[in-house]
Structures are given as C-alpha cells and as structure tokens.
Write a protein that binds this DNA or RNA. Structure first.
Lengths: 369, 369
DNA sequence: GTTTCAACTGAATCATTGC
DNA sequence: CGCAATGATTCAGTTGAAA
C-alpha cells in the first residue's frame, strides 16, 4: 500500500499496539491522523507507606515503577511532552480525554490549557463501590475526574448528543457518571493476581467513545495498559492505536482484543443519527411544493392578533414588516428565533399547527416518498 | 486589650468584614491566626456571547467586572497572590477549601500544590438542579469542584470524621456531595433581582465548616460576597473574618449575619443525600455494563411474534418503531407501560426473563457487590 | 383551601453555513 | 477572515395566578 503513495506521509498503523516509550512513539506518528485520544496517565500517587485495613489485611497499592517521578517538575515535563505529542497527532477536529485523580489532574489540566487545548467539559466518575478511607482521616475518595478538551477553541468536534440523551433514558447526559469500578470477571488476572493496578471499567470507555467518536474513527491511547480502550473501540466499530511500554501489558492486551468479536452487528446500530445532519430546506420550497399558497395567512404562535401574509417570493409580511420567517419572528420577539416553530398555519376545520409540520412533509416529498 | 500586650502582633479582628482588596487585606493580617480558609474566587468564565434558552428567554450570565482577567497569566498571578496570602495567615494546623469549575480549578489546584499546600481530598458538589446545556453541544455541566488542602504536608489538621459519618446516615462521608443550588427563599434578592451572581448554598458551607473546624475556630473567607460562610460560621459557633471589595456586598452580608441567632439552625442546612437505593438506572447502563449487547433481541412479553433489537445508544427497534423501552412498549400497548417488565431477554438454554432481572444485576454491581 | 399550569431561573467558556 | 442568514435547543425547582 505504501508504495502506491510514496510521497504521502504514512498513515498510522491501525488496530495495533506500538510497544515503546509513549512520547517517542507519539512523535513518530503522522500528524493530524487521530480523531480521539483517551489517556490514563500515571497519577504520581506519591504513596509513602503501607496501608493496612482494619481487619489487618494489607492494601495492594499502586507502587509500580511507572508511577514514580522525582518531583512535580519532572511530572510536569513528562505531562507536557505527552500532551503536546497527542496534540500534534490529533486532527484539528479531534478531542482528548484524560482521566486522573487529585494527585495529578490539576497539573494535567493546567498544562493542557497552556498548550492550547480548550476544555469542553470535565466529568466526574462517581464510583459506586470505592475503597473506604480505612483510617477515618479524610473523606472516602469516591471519584475520579476526566477532562474532555478539543484541540483548539472553536473547531468543530464530535458529540453524539442524541445518543447520550437516549443512553440516559431521554434526559441530557450530565457531567457526573455513576459507575462501578472494575472488579469480578471483568478484571484481568494472571495466576489469581490482577494484571494491571489501575484497569478501568469498560463501561467508562463505552460512554467516552460513544459520546465523542463515530464508527471508523481512529482512537489513540498513549497509555494502553491492558487495552480497555482498544477492546471497547473494537466493539463499537472504531479503529484503535495503542502505545504501551511494558511487554506483559502489550501481550495481555493483544490477546484480550483478539478474542473480541465485534459481531455481525449491522453497522447502523453504531451510527447515532443527529438531527442537525438533516439538509436545510428553504421556506420557499413549501410554496413550490404547493404546501402553502401565496397570500395565505400565518399566525404568530397561533395568535389571531398577529397574522402574517405569505408572499410569493417566500417572504412574509406582518403589519409593515417584511422579511423571512426568521427575520420577522426575531423582530416580533426581540430575540433570535426559529421561524419554523413560531409561525402557525390553519387548515380548514383543523387546529393551528407550526409550519415545521409542513417542512417535515416537504422533506418526505423531497426524499422520495 | 491591645494595651495589655503592646509587643505582640495584633490579633485578627473577628466577626468582621474587611472592605478592600483581598491580597492587600490578607497581607495586613497577622500570620498564623486562622484555622480554616474557605475561598470562592472568581472563575474567569470568559463568556463571549449571549445565550438564549429554547424558550427565547435570555440567560442572565456572570458578566461582572470582578470576573474579568486579561489572560491566563493574569489570572495565575492573582491566584498565586491570594493563595500565598492565605497560607501566611493560616496556622500550621490550618486547612484551606477552594471551590471552582473547570474554567479555573485546574490552575488553582496546580498553583496551590506549587505553593506547598498538600491536598487532602477533592470533593465534587453534584448539583441536583443544574442549568441544562441549551444548545445540546456538551454534557450538562452539573458539578463544581472543591479542593481541601492543608498548609503543609504531615501537620495535624481537623477532620470531624464521626460527625461526617453521622451526617451521612452512618456511612463514611464520600467525596461526592449531592446538594441543590441556591434558589428560592435562601437566595438573597434586592428589588426582585439576585444580589450576587454566584451565591453558594448554606448546606455546602455547613458541610465544609462542620467537617474541618471546631467551635471557636477562626474561619477566613477572602471572597466574602454576601457572606454565606460567615452566616454558617455564626450558626455553628465559629468565629469568622470576611474580606470583600464591593460596598454593596459588604452591606448585605453584614445585615444578613446580624440577623442570625446562633443555634437557630435553619432547616435547609440539614439536607441529606438521596438514598442511593432509590436512584434511577437508565436502560443504557445495561449496555455499558455488558449485561446486554447492541444487536441483541428482546421479546415483547416473551412473545416470538414481537422481537425488538437493542441499539447501541440504549434505544430499541421493533418493526419500524424506535425509542426507549418505555416508548416502544407504550406504542405497542397503546397505554403507558413499564418497559422493564414487558421486555424479555433470552440467555442460551434458559427461559425468557424480564429485563428487570438485568436491572437488579446492574444495581447490585453499582451498589458494590 | 386545593390543584393546575404558565412563567421564570440558575457560575454557561452552548452553531453552522455560505458569501 | 468577517458578517449575515438560517435554525437547533432545556432540567429541576420555585412562584404566583388561575381554576
């Protein structure tokens, strides 16, 4: 394939784990090639001593080599490097998710703002079953924080609003997500011990990917670990790219993902249609289609006191005001307004209805009904 | 009194609002004189345009002069100055609370770590009634973040563990606090308009002061506003010190606090978190948890004749109907219907069961099995 | 007095397209 | 790039008037 396009920058190798240092690998990838980054970086927990439960069992804490940094400055340098690397490989329309705790998330958030990322939301993962505070000296640390940011302020980005709303039984999805931690059968183990100290639940990744990517999009995870993001990406028909230093994690992740069957599921199951995607339909088309007649009367919010006359050119006239349905509505309301919703028509023997109803008819006619 | 100890640094003037610039006043106060700082600094929202609700009313946004900064660098300088000032006046055993949103909290958190504060917890205030996202372009911004930090790592500090546990019906108080925003009779108004754009609920301050101070302790608020922290401090028999620039806020706060009778605890301060057992569980969670798969078939009342397909966004499709489990069931029945009871799933080699069985499983997972 | 309903509101970084 | 035109979009709670 590469031979066919010798001058083009190589495409990123998809559905593949790159073993190596995260910053080095990031810098070797082509720029503007990734739609979504999910990053679960080391938290720099700085734990200093062992912790024992009241029942005298020892807490198996995160003490891995990869979570040790000399000081804040070292952690900041590392953070700036990988965040900048991710920004380079992101498409301009891409977004980034980072998860962290109070140990690191404030530093991460400040640095990504300084690098030019623009925060869209922060989201709190509220854990239904967190580890208690055994010593009774602080509040139960029952949440982690995710930051969702776009590459640059003002760019277009993917947010499957309706899908999120549907997933939340018809109410807008909020910034607090209540989900259990990764335990039981979901937790990857070897010889009875957990493979990775900080494996994230698939449900968390499901929501992230479903919210902020589309089927076929490329999802990059620079701290791949045991590959939860890749596993969920495969299930949701996204492409994935992993970066991971440690051979054991790479091996476990590869095997895990290979076992997943995205299934013969129709792709359409994973397309979340957006209302915005509907093609624009000018008001004048209603005249051309014969759904409205020149001279016919419309009523502002179905109010007899404010009739308007439909002109043959697709404008309307209300008193002395002439303009589009939107312009006249805006003048009457003193506020930005959707003319399709506020102007009503009346058919003989029928109650008034918004002209948006006629637009739906016109669309059906146009789309070949 | 001062005459008796002419050589000692003067004590901070208690139960008093210092009108003036917060950093200047802080630097004029005696060092190591304060037990607890509660700070609600400007968030630097950077709003750029008007926002209208779908019903064409305008959102009354925070556009006050005190929330405007030239750039991140200016905001950081300001933040470093007041955080350093607070650290100087804090006793070594003192702690600091700061509240913020994603606009500012990451910068605040990073700076306070750099200044030597040591974070004890972060806490999320989960709002029961946040403002929705009217344009459908992000998640509902439904929480704010509080950071709780001690002056220096390892010092003794006040945490009323048992009181918090009692306040949470006998369970350890967690880092997620579910509380309503400040509305209704609690919201201070003059001539029908809110006095301050960002008045915090007393219940939030109640929990902060009850957790991290003792009766008689000195509580300092460098952004006093309309004095919620002082009002709660007085109710809880703490001493308070306020700093506020604006004369009108100072006046309103002083009058408000003067009217308070300590010990006369307002009922709204005892807002308890909702029982988790009653929490709603959206159908989509079954997908996120992997209890159902996209594309899987459900059966209306276990009837082969009416299968439905589970979509990846948590809706179902039965024939040409698409909607929530409740909506589709309602359409089939012609009556309001509980989708959890009428839709059945079938596991291999098992009789069909209502999906309510899966909801019970998901709840068990969520509630910590 | 009780119930119903319309109007209003809250720390909000809140659009996209074509000229 | 800027500007103008088109048009998509809300949840929980309070208040007060109407029924």
């Amino acid at each position: 394939m590469a031979k066919c396009h010798p001058r083009r920058e190589p495409a990123v190798q998809l559905d593949h784990i790159h073993q190596g240092d995260c910053v080095e690998v990031l810098n070797s990838l082509p720029e503007r090639s990734v739609d979504l980054v999910f990053a679960d970086p080391p938290y720099n927990l700085q734990l200093q001593q062992e912790l024992w439960r009241p029942n005298m069992t020892r807490v198996d804490a995160v003490d891995d080599e990869w979570d040790r940094f000399d000081d804040f400055a070292a952690y900041d340098r590392f953070t700036r490097a990988w965040l900048a690397g991710c920004r380079r490989v992101l498409k301009d329309t891409g977004t980034l998710w980072v998860i962290g705790s109070y140990h690191n998330i404030y530093r991460v958030g400040a640095i990504l703002m300084d690098l030019g990322y623009w925060i869209l939301n922060d989201v709190v993962w509220v854990k239904t079953n967190p580890m208690p505070n055994f010593r009774g000296v602080r509040f139960t640390n029952a949440h982690e924080t995710l930051i969702w940011a776009q590459k640059e302020r003002g760019a277009r980005y993917t947010f499957n609003y309706e899908a999120m709303k549907a997933l939340n039984d018809g109410l807008q999805m909020r910034s607090d997500w209540e989900l259990p931690i990764c335990t039981g059968a979901e937790r990857l183990k070897l010889n009875g011990t957990k493979v990775h100290a900080t494996q994230k639940p698939g449900a968390l990744l499901y929501r992230v990917l479903a919210a902020a990517s589309e089927p076929g999009d490329v999802v990059l995870d620079p701290f791949f670990g045991t590959g939860t993001s890749g596993a969920v990406a495969k299930k949701l028909h996204r492409r994935w790219v992993g970066i991971e230093r440690h051979a054991q994690y790479v091996q476990v992740a590869a095997e895990r993902i290979a076992q997943i069957e995205p299934g013969d599921l129709a792709r359409e199951l994973f397309v979340f249609p957006r209302k915005r995607a509907q093609a624009r339909l000018p008001f004048g088309v209603l005249l051309e289609q014969g759904l409205l007649q020149p001279g016919q009367t419309l009523y502002f919010r179905d109010d007899d006191a404010r009739p308007a006359q439909v002109l043959a050119n697709g404008q309307i006239k209300c008193g002395e005001r002439i303009g589009s349905i939107h312009e006249v509505a805006r003048a009457l309301l003193g506020a930005p307004s959707n003319g399709w919703e506020v102007w009503f028509f009346r058919a003989p023997g029928q109650p008034g209805q918004p002209i948006d109803y006629l637009r739906a008819q016109a669309r059906a006619m146009r789309d070949g009904a």
